[in-house]
Structure formats: structure tokens, C-alpha cells
Design a binder for these strands. Sequence first.
DNA 1: CACATAATGCACTAACTAGTTACTTCTTTA
DNA 2: TAAAGAAGTAACTAGTTAGTGCATTATGTG
Lengths: 213, 213
Amino acid sequence: MAVKTTKKIRDADATQSRILAAAKKEFAKSGLSGARVDEIADRAKANKRMIYHYFGNKEDLFRIVLEDAYTDIRTAEQALELEHLPAREALEKLIRFTWNYYLKNPEFITLVNSENLHKARHLKQSDKIEVLFKRFVGMVGALLDRGVQEGVFRPGIDPVQLNITIAAIGYYYLTNRFTGSIVFQRDLMAPAALEERLAFNIETIMRLVCLDF
Amino acid sequence: MAVKTTKKIRDADATQSRILAAAKKEFAKSGLSGARVDEIADRAKANKRMIYHYFGNKEDLFRIVLEDAYTDIRTAEQALELEHLPAREALEKLIRFTWNYYLKNPEFITLVNSENLHKARHLKQSDKIEVLFKRFVGMVGALLDRGVQEGVFRPGIDPVQLNITIAAIGYYYLTNRFTGSIVFQRDLMAPAALEERLAFNIETIMRLVCLDF
DNA sequence: CACATAATGCACTAACTAGTTACTTCTTTA
DNA sequence: TAAAGAAGTAACTAGTTAGTGCATTATGTG
């Protein structure tokens, strides 16, 4: 079946996509409570009625936006194909990826923060998240094992703790960039500062994981 | 002048304290947008009018709550007197303190998150914060220098990067404890998990900073 | 082309929410 | 002890906000 290229006046899929993109922006900008449904409708150039038609209500919309965000980062991670690299290079690639993903997708961080403010009550309702993460933790676990076999990593490191730490040192810096820039009296988002931070983070993890560094 | 111990029916100071405490809870629970002024008044067992009388408006109240929270943690840090300990012990004490402070004062984390969602526009208005942090960064800088002199720390570590990392590895774990417990399928707040995390964090920093660990 | 169905728009409401007005009650001090 | 000012209250307002009822319009299919 040929894909229609005619620009339809009415296009359910396109409208839903626009609503999701708009919702992501608005929820990321203002949080769940601060986000305005009218604002989402405006941004999406859709009628508010459509939001309720396709997504039920504000909270359901938030849940779907959140699920999409998680799916997106985990999918990108799968595409790294770390298993084809020597362990140390693979680890560094993972650190760089995590940092750059947060940097280029600041909405991800804000959405996760918002969800935690609400004690993860939306994520609890989701069933497709667990599988996503099981695969991811497995990936890092395999990487650690391989590094030990190659004789470059220390044995006995918990992949979950390592994952959390790799995420933490990037996430915290970026989510708190506004207060951080004030209290430390330097522009944490200046290109040089970002490079410096990434280098520091790589060093932190390498010293933690590698036998000699 | 003797301090009155008689329980006054009307007590401006006591009312202000109750409002501040209530506001801290409510803002921490629901964020700035999600917090309700009526709810704060109820929690404080004060009339809503009093909030506007003493604190101007909701945003000003938030700013004061935030300033108090920052002052509180930095004051507690000063009390550590790290300069009286060998550098390695002092560093470990700082890591433990940071972790335990976040653990016992979860509102602090939520308030800072909320402020960053709003691009730190309230902190920008504050003037007493910079001094607080200058002293703190100076303290860690002095500790690093001393460790180098003692021959136990690597030279050339940026105290700001180190501060950020020490905060990050605790803060991220705790702020994302709800989503984290779901995606990693383990209770991140179980006593054993908390101990394990603290140990992992100490190891991370020690390996980063110490010459041999 | 006609009909069923899906997409969309408009105008509304019921509940909520920050902030205020006008007043009463208590406390201090000259 | 009386007056002045500070502390406190209740009821209200003006604006906002999530969610809906219902009519209308486009689209694919037989």
C-alpha cells in the first residue's frame, strides 16, 4: 500500500504526534502541576478537545510522554553496540553517550524529576519499562564481566551502582545548572565548562572501574 | 531582658515559624506550582492572611524557605570542623555528612529541584547565598591542598568539580529513588541498600582523590 | 455518490486558587 | 487604664483551569 503524501486536513496520527511533542515540552518546562492543558493544545496547534479524545486526561498524557522518553533513551543506548568494542573504550563511550544524551535532551531530566516528585505513580502503571531496563542493566553487567576477563576492570562491581553513578555525575550537574551557576559563581553551561565536566566524569568512572588508570 | 515563657495567644515569631515550617513541607511535597497557599495556612494552623502579612506572596515565601534551606545545610557543614582531622578522614567525613544530610532532609533536595525547574529565579534575588558557598568551596579547597601536602591526595583536583561529584552521587540516588526502585527492581531505600550505596560512594570519591586506595 | 465513522471546533461549567477587604481581638506602653 | 498598634479572622473576588456536551466537517469505503 502506497503511503499518502497528500497533506490531509485531518490526520489523526499527525495530530497525536504534535500533541505528544507539545506535551513533552510543556511538562518539561513547567512540571506536571505547572503545565497547562490549554498551552499544550496551543503549542500542538490542536484543539484541547483532541487531547482528551486521544489521551484521556492530563495525567494519562503525562504517563505516555514519560514512557516515550524512557523508551527513547534506552533505544539509543541499545544502538551503541558496546559489545563490539574493547571494554575500556566501551565504558568511555557509555559515559560520553549518557552525558551527551542529557545535554541534548534536557526534557528527559525534567520529566524524570517531575515523576519523582509524584513518587513515580505514573511509572508504576507502566508495564513496558521493566523490560527496557533489564536489558540495559544486563548490557552493563556484560561489559563489566568482559572488562574483568580482559584484565582491565576490577572484579565485583555492581552494575546497578555503576549505572546510577554514571547517570548521577552528569544528571546532577545538568539538572542543577541554574542554582549551580549561582552558588559556584561560574557559568556551568559554557562550552569549556561542559568539556571540563565530561573529562572529570570520565576520570571519576575510570578510576573507579579500571585496575590501573 | 527576660525571655517570656508564658504561652501567648498571639505570637508573631511563633506564627512565622509555623508558616515557614509548613511552607517547607508543602513546597517540598508538591513543588512551587503544586503547593497550595491554603494548605500551608492549614498546616501552620494560621490564617491565610498571615502568610501575605508576613511574607508578601507565594513566591517570596518560597524564596525565603529556599534561603533557609541553603543556610541550614551550609551551617551544618561548617560545624564539621574538617580542619582538625587528617585529610583522608576529613574527606570521608564530608562524604558521609553529605549523604546523611540528604537522607534526613529530603525536602532540601525537592526544594532545589523545584528552584531549578524555575531556572533559579528566586535564588538570583538572594544576596546571602554567595558568601555561604564561597566559604564552603574554600573549605574543600583547603582540604584538598592539605591532602596533597600530607602526600595522600592527587594534586590538581578542582574543588568545585569534587563538590559537585560528592553531592551528585548521593543526591541523584535519593531524588530518583521512586523511579529508580521501579526500573532497577530493587528497593533503593532499604537499610541495606542505603549502606551499600554510601560505601560505593565513599569508594568512588576515594579512588578519585587519593593517590593509593 | 451516499453513508458511516472519525476528526475537529466552540462554548461552556464546576471547581479551584492567589490574593484582598473589612473587620475583630489581643497586647503593650505612655 | 486608655489608646494605639499589632495579630488574627472570615468571607469574598477576580481570574484560572481541567474537563465536557454537542454540533459540524472531512474522509474512506461500498
